[in-house]
């Protein structure tokens, strides 16, 4: 584990000076985090690499909804709350997920498997209502389909 920071450090070197480089570095670090978030060490690393104050990186990180500064579940479930999903029943989907996972939007299940996030439009309204689990989209959902869907992730986690 002692080597890890150096490895991560080398990994984000390529992004320094690139257009959009800081966001790329943050994405890269977050995607490697088991708990799907950017730790204080990550933020400090990016600040020192890019030569900006840590508070400024913090300001950037907390601005964007894809970044988290507290640990999240292994899988992020994003539920679109905007009008195109709303008019075809997204609030039922969110409510069903909250009930099924026993958490509110923004929360993480006690087993650390899922974090539920209410988000803005995911751009898959052609198949609304839709949710995204990590980078996979599930569209034309009904709340009846949810238990089976989540069970797949649970099984995978056990295996």
């Amino acid at each position: 584990m002692i080597e890890a920071p150096n490895k991560r450090s080398a990994q984000i070197d390529v992004f320094v000076g690139q257009p959009g480089g800081m966001l790329k570095a943050l994405h890269a670090l977050q995607s490697q985090s088991e708990a799907n978030f950017l730790s204080p060490a990550d933020i400090k690393l990016v600040a020192s690499k890019f030569g900006v104050p840590v508070a400024k990186v913090w300001g950037t990180v907390t601005f964007y909804s894809l970044f988290a500064t507290t640990p999240r579940g292994r899988h992020i479930i994003r539920v679109c709350e905007n009008a195109p999903c709303h008019v075809v029943g997204a609030s039922d989907i969110l409510a069903a997920l909250e009930q099924h996972l026993k958490i509110r939007a923004g929360g993480t299940t006690t087993d650390g498997l899922f974090t539920l996030e209410a988000t803005s439009c995911l751009g898959v309204c052609g198949v609304a209502p839709a949710i995204m689990i990590d980078s996979t989209v599930y569209g034309n959902l009904t709340k009846e389909q949810l238990p089976a869907l989540l069970a797949e992730y649970r099984q995978e986690a056990q295996a």
Partner: peptide, 10 residues
């Protein structure tokens, strides 16, 4: 030139 304080959240 310190940058202890910065705008955060949105």
């Amino acid at each position: 030139g310190i940058g202890i304080l910065y705008t955060s959240e949105r």
